[in-house]
Each structure stands twice: as C-alpha cells, then as structure tokens.
C-alpha cells in the first residue's frame, strides 16, 4: 500500500486543494498511490469526515497535523483528543521535546518533515540545539523540496539512523502523490498508520519523474 503522508487541503491557510479534487486527480491521472494523509498546518481537523469520499473513490483518507517547533516543522500521526490537550497545535514555537513526549504518552508518531530545508527543517538547527532525543523517523522525500534539500535530509537520516518516509507536501491538486510511503500491508485508519510506522516496515518513494 502506498500513501502520500503529507498533504494540505483548503483547511490550511495556504492550501488551495479541496479533498474531493485530490481524489479526482488521483483517479483520473491514475496515480500509483492508494490514499493520502491530510496534515493541516498548526491544527488538527476534527470536524471533517472524509469516509464517504474515501469509499466513493476507493482511497484511504486519513488525518494528521503539521506543527512548528524550534527544530522546524513536524508531522504528527495518530492525533487524538488527549494529544490535542497536551500542547497548543497553533503555537509556532513549540519545543520539539514536548511534542515528542506528548506523542509518546498518547500513542502518536512525530516525524520532522522536510528536514533538509533551511529554517523550517531539522538539520538546520542541529548545530544550535544538538541532536534531539526521541526522533526515529524523518521525511526524507518531500515533494516540495528544492535543490539538494532531500539529499541533506537523507544524509542526516543515514548519519543519525532515522527511518524515512515520503510525502508530497501538496498544497495544490496537481502536486499530490509526488512522493509517498510504501507499506507492506493495507492501512485504513490513523491507528493502523501509527502501528505501521512504529513497526518500521516502510520506505519512502518518489514519483516526481513519473
């Protein structure tokens, strides 16, 4: 199963894609992905229910979040009500340690995203803050990366022993599925995604040249 683990819809302030349009694009363009995770900026979208859309298009549509820390942006998978109480998702100065601690306490998985990017990527802050405890997975393939950002991310992951995921970071419809993550078994819920990430059997894949 292949999931794009990093997408934004119009629920994000800079997102220009409706979820239904992502589904239409994936099917009409016959993209090689089976679904995607909506990781809206600085929030978790509690209100939207995409189950009918997912059924209509035969896709897996899950929800996560992208929060902002001193080490840059971090995807959070497996968001639950207690986790939402644990820290303020809208705070752009979250301590990464607090995010990691809360994720561990409430069964979520934190994944620093586009870590090779300056200012908002983890690698840019290692010299100042050191290697953070508790990071196990980073986004090594990001569909919005420029220049050598993904190479920097992969080099950091290799050096520090992190596993890598892929996500498109799509904000517009035509960018969905540029990068994704391949899992050995089907994933149909946020909980199953957390278990799969914790299991460690996955690989980042790129379809940018497809």
């Amino acid at each position: 199963m292949i999931l794009d683990l990093h997408t934004h819809s119009i629920k994000s302030d800079d997102g220009r894609a409706k979820v239904e349009n992502y589904c239409q694009w994936i099917r009409t363009r016959e993209l090689p992905i089976d679904g995607f995770v909506l990781t809206e900026h600085r929030q978790f979208d509690l209100e939207s229910d995409y189950s009918k859309l997912a059924a209509d298009f035969g896709l897996t549509i899950l929800k996560g979040a992208e929060v902002e820390t001193e080490y840059g942006h971090v995807l959070v998978f497996g968001v639950t009500a207690p986790l939402l109480e644990a820290f303020d998702f809208s705070d752009i100065h979250l301590p990464l340690a607090r995010v990691i601690e809360a994720c561990a306490a409430y069964g979520a998985v934190p994944v620093p995203c586009h870590p090779g990017r300056k200012r908002v990527g983890m690698s840019a802050h290692l010299a100042e803050y050191g290697v953070p405890d508790g990071v196990r997975i980073v986004e090594t393939l990001n569909g919005g990366s420029r220049d050598n950002e993904d190479a920097v991310a992969q080099a950091m992951a290799d050096e520090l022993g992190y596993r890598g995921i892929g996500g498109s970071d799509a904000h517009i419809v035509s960018h969905v599925g540029r990068c994704a993550t391949r899992f050995p078994a089907p994933i149909t819920s946020e909980q199953a995604l957390v278990e799969a990430l914790n299991g460690g059997e996955f690989e980042a894949v790129s379809f940018r040249d497809a």
Binding site: D13, H41, R42, E68, G72, H73, S90, I92, R117, K118, R119, V120
Partner: peptide, 13 residues
C-alpha cells in the same frame, strides 16, 4: 492575526 514559519523565516499574517 497569526504567524507561521517558512523558508524565509517568520511571517505575520
């Protein structure tokens, strides 16, 4: 009024 961080630093909206 909100802020976010990006490649170019902090932005205020």
């Amino acid at each position: 009024i909100y802020a976010k961080t990006g490649r170019s630093g902090r932005m205020i909206f």
